[in-house]
Design a protein around this nucleic acid. Sequence first.
DNA 1: GATTGGATCGAAACCGATTTCGAATGTTCT
DNA 2: AGAACATTCGAAATCGGTTTCGATCCAATC
Lengths: 340, 340
Amino acid sequence: MQVNIKKIAEMAGVSVSTVSKIMNNYNDVSEKTKQRVLEIIEQTGYSPSNSAKTLATKKSNLIGVIFAGELNVEITHPFFVEVLNSFKKQMGVLGYDLIFFSNEKFVSGGDYFSRCVHFHVDGCVIISGEKMEPAIRDLDMSSIPCIGVDLELKGKKSGYVMSDNYQIASKVVEHLYLLGHRELGFIGSTGDSDISNQREAGYIKAIESFGLSLNTDWFIHGDDFFEPSGYAAMRRLIEQGSLPKAVFAASDLLALGAIRALKEHGLRVPEDIAVVGCDDIEACKYTTPTLTTIRQNKERLGVLAAHMLFDLINNQSEGGSFVVEPALIVRESCGSGLRG
Amino acid sequence: MQVNIKKIAEMAGVSVSTVSKIMNNYNDVSEKTKQRVLEIIEQTGYSPSNSAKTLATKKSNLIGVIFAGELNVEITHPFFVEVLNSFKKQMGVLGYDLIFFSNEKFVSGGDYFSRCVHFHVDGCVIISGEKMEPAIRDLDMSSIPCIGVDLELKGKKSGYVMSDNYQIASKVVEHLYLLGHRELGFIGSTGDSDISNQREAGYIKAIESFGLSLNTDWFIHGDDFFEPSGYAAMRRLIEQGSLPKAVFAASDLLALGAIRALKEHGLRVPEDIAVVGCDDIEACKYTTPTLTTIRQNKERLGVLAAHMLFDLINNQSEGGSFVVEPALIVRESCGSGLRG
DNA sequence: GATTGGATCGAAACCGATTTCGAATGTTCT
DNA sequence: AGAACATTCGAAATCGGTTTCGATCCAATC
């Protein structure tokens, strides 16, 4: 039995419409009544019902958050959660709250699109890094503004942000090259991951552009981006016989798994083999050796995603994409000195 | 211009009320018309507006998620985010979605309670681990069902889940004692954190019950639960002169920071000093030494929180609390063998 | 055949806001 | 004083659902 607009109107001795106008900054209400009403609103702590407001205006000030894909890219993923946190903050400043759709419901029917209209979300952010699924494509092609994080959306009301995966790979190769490494390997996620594939393609391109020879025996793939996959991949590489002098892993956790396998096999990192990760998650600083990696500007990705979505919602942009520049973070896992 | 209930009614040649009844499992509609309407709903992909539904029923099927406190306990915190993920999954099974309130809005007025009524949330989960703030107390005392995670709520419609901090401390002391350590130190968060205080109190109690002497010079506090605080705390301990043989840190990140400071000072872990963390975050497994710690059953905490909240919402419970049993995870940071 | 009762459906009020449009009042100008 | 205009306000329709209650129809009962 919460206070509603009617009660405020009664208390102030004005009509419901007048109260509504005051709440929405109309200018056809006198300063005197405005102050009186505002005072009562203040006292009662009145906050208009979002449902009623949404129903009347068809704007909910809600942004849907979708974790797409099947590689367990959940809210717990250290990279995405930091992007999301930055996104959430920025969206808050812009006046929006976030609603997380529980994936469980999809089992019992109801695709992403209909859930968006169900909640009248003004827009949504889709977090993935995998290949596009049909349900996501439907949403992308709808009239609902969407921003992909590490997912290339192409709809008229869509956009995306991601790091430049080609540049990432090229920075890694350059670093390894300058350290004297000529035999380079790669540990990726499953082939279903666009992100992993792009990093691999960029890596190959960079290797070739440096005039190095490519040994695809040293290119190996796990099932996802997590640590056990990296461990398993490196195990296979070791059992296979010949090892490269350096490997680039498509995620930090893959790199850490690989390092675990190497240590277990009595190999030293970086002395026997150098390892580079990707993402610069928090844990990189605490491992032994600390992990040389590529930092993606997660905060910037989140802020950019928020602003792009805001502009899309307010018809101030036609979508598009932002590619954020990555930075090489040199720690211990490749050795530090040049030609060291 | 989405399909609404009126359109469905027209297409099926029935009234709006009949459609509504079918959607809500009333039994005064014939099987024949029911099938006809359901078919049309299926074809059109109709999904009823949550706003309209909420407005009419005063139930939103939405759970508010609140990160309280000022210690940067954000969505990124590795412990809470895992509890939250489990909570989210379970809540999804129970038919609820999650809405995250953007803290930014609070700056410009509007407390937690009014935001909950604003969105008609059916209940909310409050994630903290700090002392209770007034705004949270208001919410706790309101008629809105609330569950605290690491926060002791006491309202009539409230409950909470947490790990048994006394038991945590006692398991740590027992472990250290059996390893032969008699000089025990502690690194906590700020005194504003109930969790840290409880762990400290339990630690002291356990030390006394083992008949060990207490040296409060070895008890030291940081500003929060994060790594730099642990580093700074250990630095102070080192500069202070005498060092304990083992320290218990109130979080894993504090422990990792402490280890960094020790290494930097040329001390070996665990040979010169043993370190125990708390939480068992993912990174514990990748550090050197790997971190002996206390595992809190995050998945169970989340599931319990979800069920308690559900029961509270549906008046099937009067609130209360669940305390989950912690488990000691022995890794390398204290040495592994007994008396080793 | 009249009555009862159950099954099936729809009209209408309602939830709490927004927004349009016209009415009433006050102000300025000729 | 009267006309023209600006200011201020409220009645009512609307958004998309839910829910109550009465109407209708048909079968069963007496």
